[in-house]
Write a protein that binds this DNA or RNA. Structure first.
Lengths: 211, 211
DNA sequence: TCGCAATGTTAACGATGTAAACACTGCCGC
DNA sequence: GCGGCAGTGTTTACATCGTTAACATTGCGA
């Protein structure tokens, strides 16, 4: 692996990475239905069963990809937070939401995989669980901070977090599935921004007694 | 078809209905991955390719099932509305949300199918599109009524609707995917009710200027 | 240098979606 | 009443897929 040129020097080297990489491309390009282990192996120029040297089975591969997805999601949110170090707790919450939605609409197939039916058995893949929990933890932490500082009313943090997560998750999936058809809806590039105002106002006034 | 006993008298009769029915059972019972045309035909006691007399292909079958799902969803919401004829506009909105979430968690596999990846090409199935649009229309109408009556601030109806839909859809999918793990979260039976308070308060105060 | 462990390969199995050609059957017009 | 046609179902066949088992290669460490 020393003499070969630059990127992937599989054939001897990092087949694993090459597989994940091409899988991701195929995913975003042709949708998740078009992703087959054999086709993948074909694309990489390797035997069909070589895949099994690196992944126990298809679900294992998908779990690895999903894991990278959550890592990317966390990274996106972290990066955005870092750009605005002096944001108050509410603003931080909003930034997280923006990052979340933006990541989701930027990587629709990847996002779908992360929450796809095959991933329900997430428990079987500890790394995946960790990565997912970390993403969620960022959100929950931000909510907790906002509650602690009094910027958000003293509603149980898990409930508030669930509400916020439902919002961004719902908006992301609806957008990705093309169900937000009308002209009245913001272009995906601005989806995060538009969502921002909604979330901010909703959260700000949440849990003041309704009646 | 005259001499046979009672329900399905396929073999000559309504194979189509029998297929959809058993497919639904299999769906809710063993998850969507376990649903194969051949297995389905086997269960019904018919040849594998008989299915193609009634459905162009697997997607066509799934579209039919998804269509019935949206019809069921609309029916659920309609029924709940009917139970409370004097509800004001906000209360009606809340009832819709409750009905939505309850239907989703009561039929997880069905709900997942309705929004599954295979359904992205919804446009190819006009009946499906109609059914889905009708469900959404109920929500949008309720939002419009609330805005018109002044119970909801004069924010563009599509945006408000999207927000509400995102909430219920996000909550439903997260719950169905088992991602709302903690004890702090309401049992699925009460998910709709708990959600109610969140939604009501959030909507009530939405779009009052945040700053 | 030998050998082992990592990595790939070929061959094979069962299951699946789907197409093509053929068979039954009950109704419709003559 | 009957002949044929349309609707419905069957058998056969094919390509593809996920996965297993047995075998081959190869490079690194003792």
């Amino acid at each position: 692996m020393s003499a070969t040129q630059e990127i992937d020097s599989y054939h001897h080297g990092n087949l694993r990475r090459a597989l994940i990489g091409t899988a991701l491309n195929a995913l975003e390009q042709d949708g998740p239905a078009a992703l087959s282990l054999r086709g993948l192996a074909r694309s990489v120029g390797v035997s069909a069963t070589a895949v099994y040297r690196h992944f126990a089975n298809k679900d294992d591969l998908l779990a690895a990809i999903a894991t990278e997805g959550f890592e990317g999601l966390s990274a996106e949110m972290t990066a955005r937070l870092a750009q605005e170090p002096n944001a108050d707790t509410l603003r931080r919450l909003v930034i997280l939401g923006e990052g979340y939605v933006n990541y989701a609409v930027a990587h629709p197939a990847h996002y779908r995989l992360m929450f796809g039916k095959r991933m329900v058995e997430r428990a079987a893949y500890p790394t995946l669980s960790k990565a997912a929990a970390h993403s969620y933890g960022m959100l929950e932490q931000a909510v907790a901070d906002a509650v602690a500082s009094g910027d958000l009313p003293a509603v149980p943090v898990p409930l508030l977090s669930t509400l916020a997560w439902s919002l961004v998750h719902g908006l992301s999936t609806l957008s990705n599935d093309g169900l937000l058809n009308d002209k009245q809806l913001p272009a995906s590039a601005e989806l995060g921004k538009t969502f921002t105002h909604m979330l901010a106002t909703a959260l700000k006034h949440l849990a003041q007694p309704a009646e």
